[in-house]
Design a protein around this nucleic acid. Structure first.
Length: 285
DNA sequence: TCCGAAATAT
DNA sequence: CATATTTCGG
């Protein structure tokens, strides 16, 4: 009996290319644009890490910077093309759920249990800066649908598919695998509500008690449209998250999967270019 | 207030 | 078309 028999995610460790996931849950979700805006560049060479104060200013509350002119309609800054002001009207761009991010999501849900898997809790457990409840809620919704779908198909509790050829696909459904299908799904997810508070979790709710942080997040000027969009293989391993900077680690002799390429995919799509902020996990997942 | 699903936008 | 955001009802 292995000790990890109960942990379904333990398997992932082996499957995952980077088994070095020993860090407590705590990812600083930052958007590239944000990082750039904040001037958070990676000091090449040299270990940086200054204990000195953190980067300038995470402008805690960019929102409502000055209550000088609001209150009455009239500020329709519609045009503003070039130097737009991100100060007000903070419209968060689109969130890109990367496999890694999704994994975290599933992790949290798995440990909480479907029953307690509520957006707020999940969000807190994930401890991902920048992630908001809405984001999680939306994703959670889709996730539940996905689980239900898969269960209905493979479960076959209904019985018989009389007449029509049932045709059940064990895994990887062409119509279902867009993101969830590629992510590990806890087997015992849809169990009946079970008493909670039993899953021993090696999890450390770091975000649970966040220090006094005041909703830092987004805000910053968004200029260039950086779309880091890495394609996702149909049914292959996830690719490594693009690193903001080549933080070459000494080890890693082999590996070095060249699969990581940030090609500039021309956004010549119907809608044209789109600005998307991608949250990247700090570290490897 | 928060969660859940629908509706809407991209 | 798929996915994420926003709105609406409980």
């Amino acid at each position: 009996m292995r000790e990890d028999d109960s942990n379904w995610f333990s398997k992932w460790d082996q499957e995952l290319p980077s088994p070095d996931e020993l860090m407590p849950l705590s990812q600083t979700l930052i958007t590239p644009d944000l990082a750039l805006a904040f001037d958070i560049r990676n000091p090449d060479s040299s270990i940086n890490n200054n204990n000195h104060h953190p980067p300038p200013p995470p402008p805690p509350v960019p929102i409502q910077p000055s209550s000088a002119d609001f209150g009455d309609s009239g500020d329709f800054v519609s045009g503003a093309g070039a130097g737009d002001e991100p100060a007000r009207t903070l419209k968060r761009p689109r969130l890109v759920w990367t496999p890694q991010l999704h994994k975290r999501f599933v992790d949290a849900v798995g440990h909480l249990g479907i029953k307690n898997a509520v957006p707020k809790t999940i969000m807190q457990l994930m401890s991902v800066d920048g992630l908001t409840r809405e984001n999680v809620a939306s994703h959670l919704q889709k996730y539940r649908l996905y689980l239900k779908r898969m269960q209905g198909i493979s479960g076959g509790s209904g019985g018989g598919v009389s007449g029509g050829a049932g045709l059940v696909s064990p895994v990887s459904d062409p119509a279902t695998d867009h993101l969830f299908a590629s992510s590990p799904v806890p087997p015992h997810f849809l169990h009946s509500s079970r008493a909670n508070s039993d899953h021993f979790l090696p999890f450390v709710p770091v975000g649970a008690l966040q220090h006094h942080h005041q909703m830092a997040a987004a805000a910053a000027a968004q200029y260039h449209r950086q779309v880091a969009h890495f394609g996702s293989p149909p049914n292959g391993q996830f690719e490594h998250p693009f690193l903001a900077r080549p933080v070459h680690r000494i080890g890693t002799p082999v590996t070095t999967p060249a699969t990581n390429y940030s090609e500039d995919l021309d956004s010549s799509n119907g809608t044209g270019g789109r600005k998307v902020l991608t949250l990247f996990p700090t570290g490897n997942d």
